[in-house]
């Protein structure tokens, strides 16, 4: 049950990653709306793809309680997923609009 909550928190961290990246690197920003959307999809993509290495929500809760180390890794990956998605969406937008 708690793994469901973890996956939602993870998405929020992804949004945070996207917004932070957009704030720090303004030239890559797609605005608050664009960065939020990119953050969500980046976070979900990264956790779905890399979470299978052992830090997806199910693995975090496998022992019955929260494995803090795996939880932190999950959040970090999600944060970077969100940030990278903002960068990639900028690149995509630039390429498409050349």
């Amino acid at each position: 049950m708690t793994d469901t909550l973890i996956s939602l928190i993870s998405v929020f961290i992804g949004i945070l990653g996207g917004l932070s990246f957009g704030f720090l690197f303004k030239s890559y920003s797609s605005g608050v709306i664009g960065n939020t959307i990119a953050g969500v999809f980046g976070s979900i993509l990264f956790i779905k793809v890399f979470g299978r290495l052992g830090f997806n929500p199910q693995a975090i809760m496998q022992s019955g309680s929260v494995n803090m180390l795996l939880f932190v890794i999950n959040m970090l990956v999600s944060f970077f997923g969100g940030a990278i998605a903002v960068f990639l969406s900028y690149k995509l937008k630039t390429k498409f609009n050349k």
């Binding site: 793994d3 469901t4 998405v11 939020t36 969500v40 999809f41």
Partner: peptide, 20 residues
């Protein structure tokens, strides 16, 4: 797009609940 994104996020628990 904003709505679609929110729909994706809130759809995650639905998927889990079938199993849990």
């Amino acid at each position: 797009a904003i709505n679609f994104t929110m729909g994706v996020i809130t759809g995650i628990p639905m998927e889990f609940q079938f199993g849990t």
